[in-house]
């Protein structure tokens, strides 16, 4: 049975990429298997665990709940784009320093949500609460991740460390 295909062009981490793919292909599978960007992980395929979170036009999205064709013409950011090769972003470094990861499978999704949170200027409390609350981690018990978020947020402009007014 041949499924219908369509050409999809997305900018991934600033690089324009075009592939023909089945219209039913999930964005997560498109990134992982069509483009070979396997840093984005698939944990539940029903939008709960958050491991597959990427940014689409800057907005965090469960890539297992989106189709590749929906991302056509958009800019996608994945874990591979967080730092130049051989380097760690400040949040990645904070995760390492605070033991915010163990098996590392859920980690890329958390990093992407935190990047969006950082850009949106959400408070540290909200990042540790609602934002982290959107991810399931079986290994860490979240304590190391919260410590990493606090470490990162402590380096952000002062206002961000405070509670954001509703």
């Amino acid at each position: 049975m041949k499924a219908e295909t369509r050409e999809v062009t997305i900018s991934v981490n600033g690089q324009r990429m075009t592939r023909r793919t089945e219209v039913r292909t999930l964005l997560s599978d498109f990134l992982r298997h069509d483009l070979g960007l396997t840093g984005t992980h698939v944990g539940c395929e029903h939008g709960v665990c958050g491991a597959c979170t990427v940014l689409v036009d800057g907005v965090p999205m469960r890539s297992c709940l989106a189709l590749a064709v929906q991302a056509d013409g958009r800019a996608v950011e994945t874990v591979e784009g967080l730092a130049p090769e051989g380097e760690l972003s400040e949040m990645q470094q904070a995760m390492r320093d605070e033991h915010g990861l163990q098996c590392g499978f859920c980690t890329p999704g958390i990093l992407m949500s935190m990047l969006a949170a950082e850009r949106a200027g959400v408070s540290c409390a909200e990042a540790c609460g609602d934002v982290l609350g959107g991810h399931v981690c079986r290994c860490t018990g979240y304590q190391g991740i919260r410590a990493a978020v606090r470490r990162r947020w402590a380096t952000l402009p002062a206002a961000r460390g405070e509670e954001t007014p509703a």
Binding site: R32, L37, T38, T40, E85, Q92, L101, T107, L111
Partner: peptide, 18 residues
């Protein structure tokens, strides 16, 4: 610091589905 963290943090690990 854990020696395998950098590859896991940067999406360069190799899990079986990769």
């Amino acid at each position: 610091a854990r020696i395998n963290d950098p590859r896991l943090l940067t999406g360069r690990g190799t899990y079986v589905d990769d």
